[in-house]
Computed example of a mutant assay.
Amino acid sequence: MKATPEHNAKIAKMTFASVYPHYVNKVERKGRTKEELHEVITWLTGFDDTEIQRVIDENLTFVEFFEQAKLHENAHLITGVICGYRIEELENELTQKVRYLDKLVDEIAKGRKMEKILRK
């Protein structure tokens, strides 16, 4: 499936704070922890726990979130399908980065080992 300009614009306007509780609920429902969620967010973005909380408190959009992030050098190794989109084929850089994060959260929820999730 190809992401439309409307889809990309919708993602750009979303805030990390609006999605974060859904990430937490998803991983905890599957028996994983908030700490594991933070580990993958830190791996992908370089944000530590304090910075993650700041991003939430400041209600940053995903544009602002990823502008401030230092994307991990192995982020390009995150591939596959999430929400009907093949990550490696997404043309919009922001949409691709958001889907990277979605894919990592999905992998936690599916019980994948952290070494595999963190592309070690």
Rank of each mutant, 00 (worst) to 15 (best):
L94N: 11
K70A: 11
K34F: 03
A75M: 07
P5V: 10
E51G: 00
K26H: 07
Y20K: 04
E35R: 00
F16D: 01
H72G: 00
R86W: 04
F62A: 08
E28F: 01
Y100E: 02
I52H: 01
L94C: 10
A17E: 12
L44T: 05
L71I: 15
V55F: 05
V105M: 08
N92M: 10
F47G: 03
T42L: 05
Q96C: 14
C83L: 11
F16P: 03
Y20G: 04
L101D: 09
L77D: 01
E6P: 02
Q96L: 13
K70E: 11
E35L: 02
Y85K: 11
H38S: 01
T95F: 14
F65H: 09
F65N: 06
L37A: 07
L44V: 11
R54H: 12
L104N: 05
L37N: 04
V55D: 01
C83H: 13
E91G: 14
H38G: 01
H72V: 01
A69P: 12
P5A: 12
E58H: 10
V40Q: 04
T61C: 08
E93N: 10
L104V: 07
V81F: 09
H72P: 00
V98M: 08
K103D: 05
A17M: 04
E73C: 02
A9L: 09
Q53N: 12
V63Q: 11
G80E: 14
E67Y: 06
T42Y: 05
L37D: 03
V63I: 15
E58V: 02
V27K: 02
F47S: 04
L44Q: 06
V19G: 00
E73D: 10
H38T: 01
E89F: 13
P5I: 12
I87G: 03
E39V: 00
G31A: 10
E36A: 00
E88P: 09
F65V: 06
R29L: 08
F66M: 11
V55Y: 00
S18N: 12
T95W: 09
A12Y: 06
N92G: 08
T61Q: 10
K30T: 06
K97P: 06
F65T: 11
T33Q: 02
N25T: 08
T50D: 14
E89R: 15
K70M: 07
Q53W: 02
G46Q: 04
L94E: 07
